[in-house]
């Protein structure tokens, strides 16, 4: 016995009055069947040993879930926000001109102001087209198939 235990009476008289007996009990036969119970638990655990693959997936699952969450948030937040950036707003507000508009615009630009007014003041029927002119135009510019399609389409 160590000196500390022998000297207990001197340093702690109240404590040394107590018998250091064990106040705890166990159920009857507890230690007799503990090893068998433990063995069953070990065997049960060995049956349900997870495969390496499923273990890897189990570890990766939170990371995959997190990545998917970020992707969703990104797609929901990024595109609406992107359309509000100054560059994008400017781009959206630009009038897009197709090639026909551009040709028309350049043709109008090419006409000088006097010719333009002259054109506006000129009566619409100033130059009457004869039936022969129309027939000649149609013959040269429109195919039979287009005429057939146009008449049957209506």
């Amino acid at each position: 016995m160590d000196t500390e235990m022998k000297d207990l009476e001197k340093i702690a008289p109240e404590l040394s009055k107590l018998k250091n007996e064990n106040p705890f009990r166990v159920p009857e036969g507890y230690f007799d069947d503990f090893a068998a119970r433990l063995q069953s638990k070990i065997e049960a655990e060995q049956v349900v040993v997870p495969s390496k693959k499923s273990t890897i997936i189990r570890y990766l699952k939170p990371a995959i879930g997190l990545a998917a969450g970020f992707a969703l948030i990104f797609s929901l937040a990024y595109w609406p926000l992107k359309s509000l950036t100054p560059k994008q707003v400017a781009k959206n507000n630009t009038i897009e001109m197709d090639i026909n508009d551009m040709l028309f615009a350049s043709a109008v630009e090419a006409i000088d102001v006097n010719s333009f007014y002259e054109l506006l003041e000129k009566p619409a029927n100033a130059e009457q087209l004869s039936d022969d002119d129309v027939a000649a135009y149609v013959k040269n510019n429109v195919s039979e198939y287009e005429i057939y399609s146009a008449t049957n389409g209506n």
Partner: peptide, 27 residues
Amino acid sequence: QERLYWHIRKIVLNHDDADDVLQNTFM
């Protein structure tokens, strides 16, 4: 088992808890 049980029991105090901890220890 017996020595470890009593060591554990004096820390966790309750028998059922001591039984669980002893099983975990041996596992």
